[in-house]
Amino acid sequence: MPMAPTFAQTLRRHHLELTRGQTTVLQVNLGLKCNQACRHCHLSAGPGRGEVMDAATVQEVLAYARRGGFSTVDITGGAPEFNPHLELLLDGLRGLACRVILRANLTALLSPPYRGLIPRLAAEQVAITASFPSLSAQQTQAQRGQGIFERSLECMRLLNQAGYGQPGTGLELDLVVNPAGAFQPPEQAPTEKRFHQVLAQRWGIAFNRLYVFANVPLGRFKDWLMASGGYEAYVRRLAEGFNPCALPGVMCRGLVSVAWDGLLYDCDFNQAAGLPLGGQRTHLSQMQGPPPAGQAIAVGEHCFTCTAGAGFT
């Protein structure tokens, strides 16, 4: 079979450029330490990873958030709960951004030292975006590890009790579905409807919105694709699904991602791929504000993930 065109070639063929719009989201990766080692993780996060953002960098993030006037701060990892300076970050963000999101794996929050975070997060109106890939225990655990399915349900019940996902509280609990293997995700709308029905009927659990994301061929997922001989077919399938109409809505156009060491990237995936912001190694202390509109975004083959089908926003 002929080689698939690169992402950059595909953009040229469609007479397109990938450049920034207005950057309103600051995504903060607090580190790669995690209690899980999910097989689809593009950052290869896990219990053995020691890269964690230190207090000085957290202070620099807060200063950048003030300078940049970002409307949303999106806190991710690894498991951000494992960073000892998470509360310092939350304290500093109070009143600074309209919306603060915490990406949770639903099991770190159950660990005794972190369980107390739930009322704190609720009091601060921090939105929670949680990974819950499947209504099947088998698929969930194949992706995320043994025992994760039941513990995820337990955590969602606790979050519901704290008001998350409940009408009238303003406490958002959104779910993220990633496929449990080398296949594309299901359509978002019917999947969200089915998850609402099944989670409510079987387990009495409520949530707000559901997002489906394709797995990004980087990190541990790429390693698995290479080992199982499926890498080329997976990337080819993403490339064949290239949808030029998805390009204006890709998340990197409005987001800047800061890594645990303070270096900036166009998105979390470019962080995993080692592609710095706009192609130039930049520390957040060098930035006066958000990256300007019109600035070129660094691209690689993994970018096909966000432009396949309906896109990845």
């Binding site: 209504l135 099947s136 698929q139 579905v177 496929p179 296949f183 299901p186 359509e187 019917p190 089915r194």
Partner: peptide, 13 residues
């Protein structure tokens, strides 16, 4: 098989 997985079905179904 591929289509079922991509439409959100699982192995048990």
């Amino acid at each position: 098989t591929q289509s079922c997985l991509e439409k959100g079905s699982n192995l048990a179904e």
